[in-house]
Amino acid sequence: MENFGTFLSVLSQGLPETLIATIGGIVLTIVLSFGAGLALLSPSRTVRVIARVYVEGLRGTSEVVQLFWIYFALPVLVGFQLVPIWAGILVLGLNHGAYGAEIVRGAVQSVPRAQVEGAIALSLSPAQRMRRVILPQAVVEMIPPFNNLFIQLLKSTALLSFVSVNEITRQAQQVLVPRFNAQAFQIFLLLLVMYLILALVITAVMRTLERLAAARVGRRPSVRARQQAATGAGVA
């Protein structure tokens, strides 16, 4: 294939930004998912309402709108502009964190009631109950849906090309296509394959984590959780 080397090297120049956005977004997503997910289950009504507003507000508006809002509108309101990649990580995290919150809430609620009662009988404090009994079991259930969520997040990093983050999609569309228009097919196919490989890496890591988390509570990975994740329960 002609020019294949050029395509690969130009696209690779965008790889660091794609990886930073993905990893940064995933970290922020995890933090917000657990924060908001546990807040949704809080005994305090105020905390629950705040978490609910965050979750519904971010899930109800489009991710592109959120990105443009933070990149173009927020600077007018606060007087300074975020570096594109930071705006990107922030939006990826805020948006997917809202979806993740529901995953965390659902998984915590799926832990059998008897486990909570057992922990109470052992007179563990509420924090100990959560940390030592409920979460280790809930995490096993969370990993398959989080796997999907992280792949969604990886796919969303392509949107950052709209706010001039030089990630791989922007490299293809702004650098390669204008120069090699006739070879658009090869360029985009290569780009798609790069995303596929990154998605496979995420899945491989998550499968390993799932096995480890399941082994920790003396279980095998749950087939049911994986199947449920495949049909995308609660995607919207």
Partner: peptide, 16 residues
């Protein structure tokens, strides 16, 4: 198709 970004698929069809 599921593992790759919709935006790239849009560009793919648009240019190819």
């Amino acid at each position: 198709v599921r593992s790759t970004p919709l935006l790239v698929q849009v560009y793919f069809l648009f240019f190819v």
